[in-house]
Computed example of a mutant assay.
Amino acid sequence: MSLFNTVHLQGIFNKLDKNGDGLVSIDELEWFLNVIGMDVKRDELELLIGEESLNYVDFLLFYETLIKGNIFEQEKRKNEREDEILERDLQKAFRVFDLNDDGFISCEELQSALSRLGLWDESCGQDCRQMINVYDSNSDGLLDFEEFKDMMLLTG
């Protein structure tokens, strides 16, 4: 079963063929696949395609190979597994800071955890309330897991 019909694929091909030469280069194809969430590298595409560019017929064959090989689905499952691992790692990190295990990180817990990790220096004049307020989206003075996750993903 194909995600796109030939009309859709022709439109995609035409959009990717920026210079109108009737060919889609590996660079254009790599860009497109990365935009739609597939983490592919140029050297992988070169091995798969065996040429520097694809005409429309080759593009259709490439697409069908992706679909039949279920590469889209494999890539999606890989990304989901990576997301699950990241989520578990973030939950473990959150527990390092949530000392009383109430589901929130308070200013005192943040300062205590940073001190234990050797990351808190009283002389630097940092204010943990200011640190929390940057990511405290509901302004309750605490970081819940989602706010912590946003902080870690935005600053990591």
Rank of each mutant, 00 (worst) to 15 (best):
Q111I: 14
E44W: 09
N19W: 03
E108R: 12
F59I: 12
V134S: 08
D83F: 14
G125A: 11
M38P: 02
E87R: 13
K68I: 02
L60S: 11
Q10C: 08
Q111P: 01
L23F: 13
L60H: 13
G125P: 13
R88D: 09
L117K: 13
V24H: 10
D150R: 15
F94C: 07
Q130D: 02
N5Q: 06
Q126C: 08
E28F: 04
L16N: 00
G103R: 14
Q91M: 13
Q111F: 02
N55Y: 02
V24W: 05
E80L: 14
E51L: 05
E28A: 13
N19K: 13
G118V: 09
K18L: 07
D27H: 11
I85H: 12
L66F: 15
S137G: 10
D58E: 15
D140C: 01
L86Y: 04
T65K: 11
F13A: 09
K18Q: 15
Y63K: 04
C128V: 05
L61I: 01
M152F: 11
M131D: 15
E146H: 03
S53M: 08
F62L: 12
Y56L: 12
N70I: 01
F104L: 10
R129H: 05
L47P: 09
L16G: 01
M131K: 15
D102G: 09
L23T: 01
D136Y: 11
Y63H: 07
K18G: 04
G11T: 10
D83R: 15
L143E: 02
S115W: 00
E80R: 08
K149W: 08
F32W: 06
N79G: 01
N19R: 12
L33D: 04
T6F: 03
E109F: 13
F4S: 05
L117C: 09
R116I: 08
G11A: 05
Y56Q: 07
K78C: 04
Q130A: 06
S115V: 00
K92S: 07
E73R: 00
T6Y: 03
K78G: 02
T155M: 09
E147C: 10
M1S: 00
V134T: 15
D43R: 07
L142G: 03
F62Y: 14
R116C: 12
T155L: 10
R81I: 11
E46N: 15
